[in-house]
Amino acid sequence: MQKVRGVVARAKGEPVSVETVLVPDPGPGEAVVQVQTCGVCHTDLHYREGGINDDFPFLLGHEAAGVVESVGEGVTNVAPGDFVILNWRAVCGDCRACRRGEPWYCFSTFNAEQRMTLEDGTELTPALGIGAFAEKTLVHSGQCTKVDPSASPAAVGLLGCGVMAGIGAAINTGAVGRGKSVAVIGCGGVGAAAVAGSALAGASRIIAVDLDDRKLEWARGLGATHTVNSKERDAVEAIQELTDGFGADVVIDAVGRPETWKQAFYARDLAGTVVLVGVPTPDMRIPDLPLIDVFGRGGALKSSWYGDCLPDRDFPMLVDLYQQGRLDLDAFVSERIGLDDVEAAFERMHHGDVLRSVVEL
């Protein structure tokens, strides 16, 4: 058992606090990871606001990189000293998705069985089964993906959630490829990553849509060929105009609201693909759409879970591309902060001032 500092959300809507967290020694299949960096993701704010569930208190943080400190019985995929990115999809290998060869849809992912606690014994719920706004965290060994140790932890740790979600929404879910046209609605961290993924895949035209000119400029730096400020222009009309009147082959909704999903639906070409990667709230409903439009336009309407990624396959590949200078993960790191600065980082994120704040430990 070890005592570390960690960021805890005790109740819905209340400011987070830095508290002493007890981390058990790893049991069978588990690993203790010394956290080096952890990005401040909007999902952590969702946890604090009670938007995920009400299993308070939460140990926040999940977009992390670090070094394996110790492992439990039976662990063979990582060893002490390995540099790893943490993931929230430790595939089981035995559920119906895994058995049919689609482990990126695994319906029975692993987390550590032991719980980290506060000093008074109160059990903590780790965000996405990770809880990495802490000096050390306990995870299932399958949540550790070994990557090149020479890579910058602040940059590659972001693959643990938002950046992977965006890149994967384009490449894995949307099947963006050479010569395709893509529109991305919402250019925060996930949307900007979808832009970068589309550029990486060789898309010929990448249209970034947002209400904020700062985000549009970030998107242009990551590969957008055109930008649309939807406060000034109708997004659907602009996307159609920029694609010879047809609409984009793939439209990615990185916002996750009924209004933006409807825009994505009508902004795609016939037989085009809509990808929903922005996370809606439980009360949201699909907008009123004539069923004949769903039938008549053909194509595919998809949801993207974690960019439909397979961490052991995708993380090392993307880190290699980063090391080669072909994927600018550093561009996502807006600021480097400490554990005590997480609450302020939530505020900056809420106002759209950053792509990612990254906690360094």
Score class of each variant (00 low, 15 high):
residue 58 F to K: 03
residue 80 P to F: 12
residue 199 A to E: 12
residue 152 S to E: 15
residue 92 C to A: 13
residue 134 A to Y: 11
residue 47 Y to Q: 05
residue 332 F to T: 15
residue 111 N to A: 13
residue 279 V to W: 00
residue 38 C to I: 09
residue 29 G to Q: 10
residue 164 M to V: 11
residue 155 A to H: 00
residue 349 M to Q: 15
residue 43 T to G: 06
residue 283 D to Q: 08
residue 10 R to M: 12
residue 320 D to I: 00
residue 131 G to P: 10
residue 43 T to M: 01
residue 305 W to M: 14
residue 228 V to W: 00
residue 333 V to M: 02
residue 278 G to Y: 05
residue 79 A to Q: 14
residue 138 L to D: 04
residue 221 G to Y: 01
residue 294 V to W: 09
residue 107 F to P: 00
residue 359 V to G: 05
residue 308 D to V: 07
residue 153 P to N: 12
residue 32 V to S: 03
residue 112 A to M: 12
residue 56 F to S: 10
residue 117 T to M: 09
residue 130 I to R: 05
residue 45 L to I: 14
residue 266 Y to T: 10
residue 340 D to I: 01
residue 17 S to W: 02
residue 136 K to W: 07
residue 131 G to H: 11
residue 20 T to R: 04
residue 210 D to K: 08
residue 290 P to Q: 00
residue 106 C to N: 10
residue 59 L to N: 08
residue 256 G to I: 05
residue 231 K to F: 06
residue 174 G to L: 06
residue 54 D to P: 04
residue 263 Q to M: 13
residue 86 L to D: 05
residue 215 K to A: 04
residue 288 D to G: 07
residue 286 I to A: 14
residue 84 V to Y: 08
residue 2 Q to A: 14
residue 88 W to N: 15
residue 3 K to T: 15
residue 337 I to L: 05
residue 321 L to H: 01
residue 319 V to L: 08
residue 243 T to N: 01
residue 297 R to D: 06
residue 278 G to V: 09
residue 149 P to N: 06
residue 268 R to W: 03
residue 267 A to Q: 03
residue 250 V to Q: 02
residue 54 D to E: 14
residue 299 G to A: 04
residue 263 Q to Y: 00
residue 132 A to D: 12
residue 224 A to G: 08
residue 198 S to F: 07
residue 248 A to M: 06
residue 169 A to Y: 03
residue 260 T to H: 04
residue 79 A to C: 08
residue 44 D to S: 11
residue 304 S to T: 12
residue 55 D to H: 13
residue 67 V to A: 07
residue 341 D to Q: 08
residue 115 R to V: 11
residue 313 R to E: 15
residue 345 A to S: 15
residue 302 K to A: 12
residue 213 D to F: 01
residue 210 D to W: 02
residue 265 F to N: 01
residue 4 V to G: 11
residue 36 Q to K: 12
residue 95 C to K: 01
residue 328 D to I: 05
residue 194 A to R: 06
residue 57 P to M: 13
residue 249 D to Y: 03
residue 89 R to H: 14
residue 62 H to N: 12
residue 299 G to W: 09
residue 216 L to P: 01
residue 74 G to V: 12
residue 237 E to T: 03
residue 29 G to A: 08
residue 142 G to H: 10
residue 100 R to N: 11
residue 39 G to C: 12
residue 156 V to W: 02
residue 233 R to M: 09
residue 60 L to G: 10
residue 132 A to V: 09
residue 284 M to V: 08
residue 120 D to M: 09
residue 341 D to M: 08
residue 352 G to L: 05
residue 265 F to R: 01
residue 167 I to P: 03
residue 354 V to E: 03
residue 154 A to H: 04
residue 347 E to H: 10
residue 130 I to T: 14
residue 227 T to E: 07
residue 336 R to S: 03
residue 155 A to R: 00
residue 132 A to S: 15
residue 242 L to P: 00
residue 264 A to T: 07
residue 326 R to W: 00
residue 339 L to R: 05
residue 345 A to Y: 03
residue 125 T to K: 06
residue 141 S to K: 04
residue 3 K to A: 11
residue 66 G to F: 02
residue 353 D to R: 13
residue 261 W to H: 07
residue 19 E to A: 03
residue 107 F to S: 15
residue 319 V to I: 09
residue 299 G to T: 10
residue 117 T to A: 11
residue 132 A to N: 09
residue 297 R to L: 15
residue 102 E to I: 10
residue 180 K to W: 06
residue 303 S to A: 15
residue 69 E to R: 14
residue 284 M to P: 00
residue 199 A to N: 12
residue 62 H to G: 08
residue 340 D to M: 03
residue 244 D to M: 09
residue 326 R to F: 01
residue 304 S to V: 11
residue 301 L to D: 10
